[in-house]
């Protein structure tokens, strides 16, 4: 009975402090949304996410249907024109949005998990563990990301899985610093001190008191990680690394460049993926701007 009962107790306690933390986050969300930039940013993100979700179902053709005339400018049959072998650019864009977001999301979640783990462990246990982990993070932060990305990709087979693994490995260090500093402040809170003094195990304190309070912070960072991953993924594909058969914003730009879209003045092929990335990035940046403006205000 005791083991079972205890487990249930802790899980509901975890849920309760998570609910409390998310409740506070909901209040700050209401405050946040008063800022027009937050509103605009969120709208942009939702538009792109919406396209990503319904895009594959409403795409007029298969992205690989090459039965149309190549290099057609936009027309009623092909609102976004066609590419170098006569594929429909709109269909590429709709399906590509979904792939880019999906891959970006997986990368963001795994990087967030890794970053949170390292950050919480370093922040909670402190001393040598902290020193060692943060030293390592510093090194990762200083090594230029893109060349490292390229060299890793060069040694991995060009598949979507490789892209996910490599970008996850490279995306977490910054988040772990954020999580660590937040954990350090949480650790000083009286109720966590109380839990510690009452002899509760470290793992339980982390799971029950610390992680739930970090959730809003993690959530916000996942948004930025998704955007970062989408941009990095596009950059990688653009460099000819990663799976070139995959349909996403990066491969659209890659084929545009590789097939000399420039020479054909094929602006209709260039604009959609770029705008997709731009709207996503502007949305995230507006949101982050509004968030930091709000935290600055409350701090004063």
């Amino acid at each position: 009975m005791s083991a079972n009962g205890q487990r249930r107790f802790f899980s509901s306690a975890t849920r309760r402090s998570a609910e409390a933390a998310l409740g506070r986050a909901w209040d700050s969300f209401h405050e946040l949304i008063k800022d027009w930039r937050a509103k605009a940013g969120l709208t942009m993100l939702l538009i792109i996410i919406g396209i990503g979700i319904i895009g594959p179902f409403v795409a007029p053709y298969s992205p690989f249907n090459t039965s149309f005339t190549a290099w057609q400018p936009p027309s009623s049959a092909h609102p976004f024109g066609t590419d170098y072998i006569g594929e429909d650019v709109l269909s590429w864009f709709l399906v590509g949005t979904a792939t880019s977001l999906y891959v970006g999301f997986i990368i963001a979640v795994s990087a967030a998990a890794l970053g949170t783990l390292v950050g919480v462990v370093a922040g909670y246990f402190g001393s040598i563990v902290d020193d060692a982990l943060m030293r390592f993070v510093d090194v990762l932060l200083i090594i230029p990301g893109f060349p490292l990305l390229v060299i890793l990709s060069a040694y991995f087979p060009p598949t979507v899985t490789s892209t996910i693994i490599i970008l996850s490995i490279l995306s977490w260090p910054f988040l772990s610093r954020v999580i660590r500093s937040q954990t350090l402040t949480l650790k000083q809170r009286p109720y966590i001190m109380a839990s510690k003094l009452s002899g509760l195990g470290s793992m339980r304190i982390i799971w029950r008191d610390i992680i739930p309070n970090l959730l809003p912070l993690i959530f916000i960072n996942v948004i930025f990680l998704v955007v970062g991953a989408v941009v990095a993924q596009a950059g990688l594909a653009f460099f000819g690394l990663g799976d070139l058969k995959s349909v996403n914003w990066g491969t659209m730009l890659y084929w545009f460049e590789a097939q000399d879209g420039i020479v054909y003045d094929a602006w209709w092929w260039l604009l959609p993926p770029g705008f997709g990335i731009l709207v996503l990035a502007v949305g995230a940046n507006f949101l982050s701007n509004a968030v930091s403006a709000m935290t600055n205000k409350t701090r004063r």
């Binding site: 730009l253 990335i277 502007v282 701007n289």
Partner: peptide, 27 residues
């Protein structure tokens, strides 16, 4: 001006490069 700067900083550089190339060097 801040909003303008935020928007510029969100431009993916590879896309901007292609745009500049397309318009300022070709079209």
């Amino acid at each position: 001006l801040s909003t303008f700067a935020i928007t510029l900083s969100s431009l993916p550089y590879f896309w901007l490069a292609l745009l500049l190339q397309l318009f300022l060097a070709v079209v």
